[in-house]
Design a protein around this nucleic acid. Structure first.
Lengths: 332, 332
DNA sequence: ATGAAAGCGCTAACAT
DNA sequence: ATGTTAGCGCTTTCAT
């Protein structure tokens, strides 16, 4: 910095002013400084900036290395933080690196707020953290004092799925649920409500979150003579699909299937699973926005920001054939 | 720190000594300091440490948010860096955040070395970077001056696949290749060599890296009356599998199939794909080791460290049936 | 608009 | 073993 100042013929303070992009330097000086810096290919030392300024303008993000969707979120968080003049510090949690560790390393960097993706920490700990700084939990509903939550409307997602299927003429729409998995209760409830609203009889088959669970549910769903099935998530839907086909049923001709997550699995071309997707961009923007609002001293009550998911129609859903089940179109 | 020192009744220097874990403090003092720190729940400011010490002991890691295997590597890198007293700074590359940007932000933190996962940067740029600091490219062979490479032995992986199949009695082993994808050439060559060594006739069917590519290759492979197929990667193998089954062939009864990558796809229980896996732990340890060696001034010629992959036997490979093709067991 | 100078919270060389 | 002191490379207040 000294060198740049010298080369530009000004003091270090001016260089700082130019780099922080604050008023206090003439256009001429600005240009001089920038040119000098370019010639020396100078880049401000990020450590020193962080240390020197009062506010670090650092957003700590904790995410899981193995969650595909977290990748989308991380990308979106970078994009959301930058225009606000904030920087993102990443800390990964993995089987050999627990969440607490990940959080601690972020605290040591003195980041101003914490954004936790799919946090599994105990509410008490989260509440303690939230006492020190803004904490927002993304994609995970937590009931901890002071913690903001930004998540997708799970019930609404299933509702869209049901409405899509009903719109295709299906009436025997079964839900293979997620058991006790996080989000499963919401989706189950959403399904029941959507079915009622459509004047249809709901029917839930116990499932889970793995392919096995989906495969295991296929028999029961077929027995119920379902023409369409909304499965808890994509993984389970894949297992379900596989099993259904092995039993000689064609998808979507005989049976429509819809997953949940819009994971990479669903996108596989030979799978082409119709599914429900989450809007990473919106989630990220809301999370960052929330954190910054708090940093700006907004005295909002901590709350939930719920983002509507959207339907991704691919190849596993189609108009009900209507022939297979004859005249029994009135319910189960 | 001042507070801790005061509470412990010593000077700040002692606190620093204790926290750096260097000789120069009596056991008694050490205990006093630690206790005082605990009471105040003091944690050293990471920014200040970085700034103050000569060597930042920071390893910059650039990875792709959407590469599942990078997740494994990141986890292993954390584990490898810690015992050496180094810290990891993560920087993600994503569609909206290019590699150069990711690298730059790491440089601004003044990390001492760069570990790039699956780098796609131009050799010239890498070479320029390598002039400033140790740079190691993991999982990507690059020919750039001064850049170390740590990668998996692709040819060896395919060789293991072929040997596994040959060991099961297969003789008509076909390779569905990866076209011009990175690593495809090595695997193709490895396949040809392995087949020759086993006294078998190699036969390569053009493929690619997507499910479509695999599916498209199924017809040709069947036409060649293959009893076993080694596919370029898991994605392609999945498409291949699907297509083969649609044509009424049973896997592994009629045909053994082996993928490459040990991706989450291969692990799906209903897929159970036999595949070739890479050793993230070893790759990470070698990468960190290399970087540290260079930092310690070792004057090694930049070179490639090649790690042997390993076979993951699941359910898509089995003993050749021997009946289907009658007596024509001698080749194509 | 520009510059001087005092931190930020540590590390590390040096003195005691 | 312990304390003193001068940085590290910036930011930021206050003069000029």
């Amino acid at each position: 910095m000294e060198d740049v100042a010298a080369r530009a013929g000004v003091s270090r303070a001016l260089v700082s002013i130019v780099y922080r992009d604050v008023p206090g330097a003439s256009e001429a000086t600005r240009a001089k400084v920038l040119r000098a810096a370019a010639e020396l290919d100078y880049r401000p030392d990020h450590r020193a900036r962080l240390l020197g300024r009062q506010r670090t303008r650092l957003l700590g993000v904790v995410y899981g290395v193995h969650h595909a969707f977290h990748g989308d979120l991380v990308e979106a968080l970078y994009a959301a933080a930058e225009p606000a003049g904030y920087d993102v510090a990443l800390s990964a949690v993995a089987p050999s690196r627990d969440e607490q560790r990940a959080v601690q390393s972020l605290l040591d960097y003195r980041c101003e707020a914490l954004i936790l993706l799919g946090s599994e920490q105990r509410p008490a700990r989260l509440a303690a953290l939230a006492e020190r700084m803004p904490v927002v939990s993304v994609a995970r509903k937590v009931r901890a004092g002071g913690v903001d939550v930004v998540r997708t409307d799970d019930a609404g997602g299933i509702r869209q799925a049901v409405e899509h299927l009903a719109g295709l003429g299906h009436r025997r729409i079964v839900h293979v649920d997620g058991g006790r998995a996080p989000g499963a209760a919401e989706r189950r409830t959403g399904y029941r409500q959507a079915m009622k609203s459509a004047g249809l009889d709901p029917h839930v088959v116990p499932g889970g979150l793995t392919e096995e669970d989906g495969a295991a549910a296929a028999g029961e769903a077929l027995r119920l003579r379902a023409t369409a099935v909304a499965v808890f998530n994509d993984r389970s839907a894949i297992g379900f699909l596989d099993q259904v086909r092995r039993r000689g049923r064609a998808v979507p001709d005989d049976l429509s299937v819809i997953g949940y997550d819009d994971s990479s699995l669903a996108r596989l071309s030979h799978v082409g699973l119709t599914t429900v997707g989450q809007n990473a961009k919106t989630l990220a923007e809301l999370a960052v926005g929330r954190a910054l609002d708090r940093l700006d001293g907004a005295d909002l009550p901590p709350g939930e920001l719920v983002v509507p998911p959207f339907l991704v129609v691919r190849g596993t859903t189609a108009q009900v054939s209507g022939r297979r089940w004859g005249s029994e179109m009135t319910g189960f």
